[in-house]
């Protein structure tokens, strides 16, 4: 019953958020205009462009990237058995940013920034696989620090790509297009893939000794969990940049709502992550509209600047309400 209530609540929240995104913007559109544009017979060509080319891709990419970040967060936390881990722990986001900077230095103004980000993210994930056998979290954090330093070095050599890179480092959903949605949509398959690993993660959560005693494959299982985590993080970073906090706070919030069983945690976190990122983006966009002279669709407030502002109070509220220990030994 509680599950059903949560599912219905989540569905309503998604619908409300999508609706809000479709209505908020510089051009005030009547509900009938938006509906007509969505259904494919817009009363004015401009309506169709505003709703279908600008507003809808932005909210869809935001929902997808949020779900991917949260899913990646659940997986990373599961594999290192540490609730403070998050997608950034893998160094994938920093790898993407470095690749973007380097590509812009080599070929200024090229249009394949997203491709560079994806390749950088996947390369960072691959490096983590090669080097992280002994201590995954530490290796990931160190890789992230090295990529961050190299990014700074590159920007000191040539600060031209600074604006693009900053949006990438903070995370932004400004000016997303249908092409961005087409690029990120297939990666949403990593969410069901993560769910298929749920029972492995449940067993792995009991500690390596117990898990091996239960028949979990000691090398293959964590590698599979980490692999899906890296793919989801890479896709999210490519779509929205290295947005902080969603991958940390969404799994926590989900755990407080549905418990730590990954069979429920994965879908719950994915939905919460989608809601969180998209809601933060709505705030970012609304604030941008109020800024004098800004072009909110392109150079407005990046969503990454807002996620922590929304996520942190949410997490504090949930922690205070449940007052549950975050990690617990058998003794």
């Amino acid at each position: 019953m509680r599950t059903l209530a949560l599912a219905v609540g989540a569905a309503l929240a998604v619908v409300a958020l999508v609706a809000a995104h479709l209505f908020v913007g510089r051009s005030a559109l009547a509900p009938g205009d938006v509906a007509a544009a969505l259904l494919g017979h817009a009363r004015e060509p401009a309506h169709e462009i505003i709703v279908l080319r600008f507003r809808l891709p932005r909210v869809l990419v935001g929902l997808a990237a949020g779900a991917l970040l949260a899913t990646s967060g659940v997986l990373v936390q599961a594999v290192v058995r540490n609730p403070l881990a998050e997608p950034a722990t893998t160094g994938v986001g920093s790898g993407a940013a470095l690749a973007v900077v380097v590509s812009l230095l080599v070929a200024p103004g090229h249009p394949y920034v997203a491709v560079a980000a994806l390749l950088g993210a996947l390369a960072a994930g691959g490096l983590l696989f090669v080097l992280g056998r002994r201590s995954l979290a530490l290796t990931g954090i160190l890789l992230g620090a090295v990529f961050g330093s190299l990014t700074s070095f590159a920007l000191v050599l040539d600060s031209a790509p600074m604006g693009t890179v900053l949006r990438w480092l903070v995370g932004s959903l400004n000016a997303r297009t249908t092409g961005d949605w087409d690029a990120v949509a297939p990666w949403l398959l990593t969410v069901p893939l993560a769910w298929l690993l749920a029972s492995h993660m449940n067993a792995w959560a009991l500690g390596e000794t117990t898990a091996v005693g239960l028949g979990v494959r000691r090398l293959l299982t964590p590698a599979a969990i980490l692999g899906v985590a890296v793919l989801a993080a890479a896709a999210a970073v490519t779509a929205a940049g290295a947005v902080a906090f969603v991958g940390l706070v969404a799994p926590h919030a989900a755990r407080m709502l549905v418990g730590s069983d990954h069979r429920r945690l994965v879908p719950a976190a994915a939905v919460l992550g989608a809601l969180l990122l998209s809601a933060a983006d709505l705030v970012a966009f609304a604030v941008s509209l109020e800024l004098p002279g800004a072009r909110p669709d392109v150079a407005g407030v990046p969503v990454g600047a807002v996620t922590a502002l929304i996520g942190a109070p949410l997490l504090v509220h949930l922690v205070r309400r449940s007052a549950r220990p975050t990690l617990q030994e058998r003794g």
Binding site: P83, L206, G207, G213, M256, G259, S260, Q328, E329
Partner: peptide
């Protein structure tokens, strides 16, 4: 079946 000396349970299980 093995009961190890120490194990951790996930929070809230």
């Amino acid at each position: 079946a093995l009961l190890p000396q120490t194990s951790t349970a996930p929070p809230g299980a």
